[in-house]
């Protein structure tokens, strides 16, 4: 096996420049550069670095096991390239093509240099298998990077979707909109409780008009939030419980043990009363 890679390493070393330009041409031909998304210079730079690390790994006697120590630098280059492509919105195919496009020019080169050698076929097979592994490695990294992007977007969305509003002096409102899952409800809960401290609030109105469904878990989260707020010395009022949700709650046999009001307006008027505040119509306007 190492003998096959020696031949490969020698071939790359002898015509590295030529191979590089053919590889870039191949990449451009299959559209893997995504018309301008990656500049020619960046592409050339990336290809050049990978080719160099590929050659060095082979010269250091690396085996076909690309997880081994000798492949570290080459893997680093591929990781960087795949991650960058994942962030820029390349497809997995476009990312994998980075390595796979090297096959054709490399095989051409091997055919020329090893034309009279008996083991040419072996070298070609071994090289093909190696490039397949490296190509799959890029898709794996790509996948991981995409997952990170999705995770980060989810986190951002979670923060965006749970605004706590200062409605009045000492009164906060938390309008919940959309489906509540465990992760989101937990963030909502922490966010609300922290804001109660920061704003010195006494009452928080949790409005669930925009929540399409309430299951046992969500109801439990709501109950926990109310209980935690109470421990901190603040009261909660739940408003906007729609008829279907009220029925679900009864059907699930849940006892919310919470003050609830039909609308946010009702909840606000109760909150004002509880905090000793009043809103009046100006007499002169009548």
């Amino acid at each position: 096996m190492p003998a096959n890679f020696d031949a490969l390493a020698n071939a790359i070393e002898q015509s590295e420049k030529d191979l590089l330009s053919r590889w870039i041409a191949a990449l451009t031909a299959v559209g893997a550069t995504r018309s301008g998304q990656t500049s020619d210079k960046d592409l050339k730079d990336a290809c050049g670095r990978f080719l160099k690390e590929l050659r060095r790994a082979l010269q250091n006697g690396a085996s076909e096991d690309i997880a081994s120590e000798q492949w570290q630098d080459a893997r680093d280059v591929l990781e960087e390239i795949s991650a960058a492509r994942a962030l820029r919105g390349y497809s997995p195919v476009e990312t994998a093509l980075f390595v796979f496009s090297l096959k054709e020019p490399l095989f051409d080169l091997l055919r020329q240099t090893l034309a009279r050698e008996k083991h040419m076929a072996d070298v070609l097979v071994a090289s093909g298998a190696l490039l397949d592994r490296l190509g799959l490695f890029t898709t794996e990294v790509y996948q991981k990077s995409r997952e990170e992007v999705i995770k980060r977007q989810q986190d951002e969305l979670l923060e965006l979707s749970t605004p706590v509003i200062q409605l009045w002096d000492k009164i906060l409102a938390l309008p919940l909109i959309g489906t509540l899952d465990s992760a989101r409800t937990q963030i909502v809960m922490e966010n609300l409780l922290q804001t109660i401290v920061d704003a010195g609030a006494e009452i928080a109105i949790i409005d669930i008009t925009g929540v399409p469904a309430v299951d046992t878990l969500v109801a439990q989260h709501l109950i926990k939030t109310v209980a935690a707020a109470r421990l901190m010395g603040a009261d909660c009022i739940i408003s906007g419980i729609r008829p279907q949700i009220a029925q679900t709650i009864v059907h699930l046999g849940l006892d919310l043990q919470v003050v609830s009001k039909a609308t946010m307006a009702d909840a606000l008027s109760l909150a004002l009363k509880k905090t000793g505040q009043k809103v009046e119509r100006l007499a002169a306007r009548g």
């Binding site: 809960m189 922490e190 409780l193 922290q194 109660i196 401290v197 926990k224 209980a227 935690a228 707020a229 421990l231 901190m232 010395g233």
Partner: peptide, 15 residues
């Protein structure tokens, strides 16, 4: 009367 309980303490107690 117990006063000033912090949010993370309250959440943990409830849990």
């Amino acid at each position: 009367i117990v006063v000033g309980m912090r949010p993370h303490v309250a959440i943990t107690l409830v849990e």
